[in-house]
């Protein structure tokens, strides 16, 4: 009971102080061609970007990425947005990420988070989980799960940021 109280205390404090300008954590991940990059360095020349957690075995994730792929060109022209697709596939399925990305003709920045370090440090419980960062790299919106139509909410958020930042 004592422990639970302490936990509640922690959460209350945490909630009180929750800052708006949370940035991406200092965690190293890999790109598809084997380069190590830090999540802190995700950026888009001062324009908003999206960080989307997914896995090759996650049906709603594939639906989300496939649906966004249909609009990606349009969205980029309109808002300049960039999408980071962070795969949490472990070594069982991480070999399928590159062929899947290519055969699906996705133009995202694909990132491998093979032992889920970034996933854990961003508080992601289950994929899909989508974050929107503003031009300064601050997380301004996030959403767990995907159903057809959620991409419309996402682009509305991005449009709002684009307008605000202009």
């Amino acid at each position: 009971m004592k422990k639970i109280l302490i936990l509640l205390l922690g959460i209350t404090f945490a909630a009180n102080i929750m800052a708006q300008d949370v940035k991406l954590p200092n965690v190293s991940v890999k790109t598809l061609d084997g380069k190590t990059i830090n999540a802190q360095d995700f950026s888009n020349d001062g324009k908003p970007f999206v960080v989307c957690f997914w896995a090759t075995w996650c049906k709603p994730c594939l639906m989300e990425l496939n649906t966004m792929a249909e609009y990606y060109e349009e969205w980029q022209k309109e808002t300049g947005v960039k999408i980071y697709a962070v795969s949490i596939d472990d070594s069982r399925t991480s070999g399928k990420v590159l062929p899947l990305v290519n055969s699906s003709e996705w133009d995202y920045e694909v990132i491998l988070d093979v032992n889920s370090e970034l996933k854990r440090s961003m508080g992601v419980n289950n994929p899909p989980h989508t974050f929107v960062c503003n031009g300064k790299g601050e997380i301004v919106w996030q959403h767990a799960s995907y159903a057809l139509g959620d991409e419309q909410h996402l682009i509305d958020v991005i449009r709002k940021i684009t307008v605000e930042e202009k």
């Binding site: 070999g95 399928k96 590159l98 062929p99 899947l100 990305v101 290519n102 055969s103 003709e105």
Partner: peptide, 10 residues
């Protein structure tokens, strides 16, 4: 693996 736009083999 071998993969190009539209085709992936692993």
């Amino acid at each position: 693996g071998y993969s190009v736009k539209g085709l992936g083999i692993s």
